[in-house]
Amino acid sequence: MKKVAVAEMHVEDEMLTIGLLGGMSWQSTAEYYRIANEMVAQRLGGLHSARVVMASVDFAEIGVLQRAGQWDEAGRVLAEQARGLVAAGADMVLICTNTMHKVADQVAAAISVPLVHLADTTAEAVLAQGVGTVALLGTAFTMEQDFYRDRLASHGLEVLVPTEPERALVHRVIFEELCVGIIREESRQAYRDVIAGLVERGAQGVILGCTEIELLISQADSTVPVFPTTRLHIEAAVNRAMALAVA
């Protein structure tokens, strides 16, 4: 029994700690935590779980800053929270939302550990499947501003977004339904229709570029590959965290 305990402690010591900067919304942050622990348990077995520290902000306050265009202030808030994660022992930090990667550089500059960028991990997964043209679904901020699209394009991807009425629909469903835990079949069908239109325009894959969309849409809802950013993001972090533990 002593040998087992020593072996388990050794693995734990070698596993890095993941810092989750979440609460935007808590619905998707809960998925980050669940997936991280499931992945570690699957790989190590027994009672193993992920080493995680989390900061969960009040999304209502961040949402006010988003709508007012006060991105510098939002970045200051997230940077402060990220520093707290590092102080708590995080070896890396993940911003658990696509939209708030608009302030990723501000957060990264405030911490002494790596920021695992969601768009980078997503782009790597897209390219690994040989996809060059992708549709991007997300909040209006993510679909219409260039911070996220340009990051994907920097990897050589062509990015398509829905039409203006479709963008409004996608955005509304995220904030009025998914962020508060409402899943409606009518909204699922509406998203399917948006995806089908993007495929007709040449999309070879679909990036679910809002962490809540994975609560509504899966591969079964698309004729082309779907890239779930929440799962891809936390999987990249778990891979990094476990590099020593599974060596």
Rank of each mutant, 00 (worst) to 15 (best):
H101L: 13
P225C: 13
R231A: 14
L198C: 06
G63Q: 14
A236W: 01
G181H: 04
T139L: 11
L127H: 02
S222E: 10
V126M: 07
H155E: 08
E186H: 02
D91Y: 00
I95Y: 03
R43E: 14
L94F: 02
A108V: 04
A243F: 04
T223W: 01
E144F: 00
M15T: 14
E177H: 01
D72W: 00
E176G: 05
L152C: 08
M100W: 08
A153N: 05
H10N: 15
V206E: 11
M54K: 03
V131Y: 04
E124G: 00
L215S: 07
A90H: 01
G46A: 14
I207C: 09
L65V: 05
P165V: 04
V206Q: 05
E38F: 10
I234P: 12
L127Y: 03
L65N: 06
P165R: 01
G138D: 07
V4K: 15
L178C: 09
A190Q: 15
L178D: 09
V64S: 14
R76T: 13
M242W: 02
G75M: 08
A82D: 09
H117E: 12
E185A: 13
V126Q: 03
L160R: 01
H48M: 14
A140P: 00
T229M: 12
C210R: 01
F147A: 07
A135T: 06
M1C: 13
G69F: 02
